[in-house]
């Protein structure tokens, strides 16, 4: 069976170019990609991950609110008992914030300039685990 990846974001961020580009690349690479849609609350987002039996979650953030966004999702995932699903992310995130995000459990953070190939390879590795 194809591995199922949830791609999306929570909150008020409307930038979907990166999300959709990554979603398309993952689909072409053979993954079953679920797009969250925009303006989701953390609850809606995490419930989607549970309902769809997701194998990995990719979150993008381009507004500078990444520290809040990733923490909220990971906390809620732990609360709802799906803390084992790996989370990765990307966006306009300063390099100095990457370590903090990894500390709270984000497996990888892709910064501006990351290629689609890097992201696809990473996700392939992730679902093999």
């Amino acid at each position: 069976m194809k591995a199922k990846i949830l791609i999306g974001r929570i909150g008020l961020d409307g930038h979907d170019r990166g999300l959709r580009t990554v979603a398309k690349a993952l689909t072409e690479a053979g993954f079953d990609v679920v797009y969250s849609g925009l303006y989701q609350s953390p609850e809606e987002f995490v419930n989607k991950a549970i309902e769809e039996k997701i194998d990995a979650i990719g979150i993008s953030c381009l507004t500078g609110a990444h520290n809040v966004v990733f923490r909220k999702i990971i906390d809620l995932m732990n609360e709802k008992g799906i803390g084992n699903i790996p989370v990765f992310g990307g966006g306009t995130i300063p390099e100095e914030d990457v370590e903090g995000l990894k500390k709270i459990g984000v497996r990888e953070v892709f910064l501006p300039g990351a290629t689609l190939e890097e992201i696809v390879d990473f996700v392939k590795g992730l679902v093999k685990e």
Binding site: L12, Y39, V69
Partner: peptide, 14 residues
């Protein structure tokens, strides 16, 4: 931009 107040729950962090 989305017509929400600063104390709206979805506004947190933004």
């Amino acid at each position: 931009l989305l017509g929400r107040d600063s104390d709206d729950p979805l506004s947190e962090g933004e």
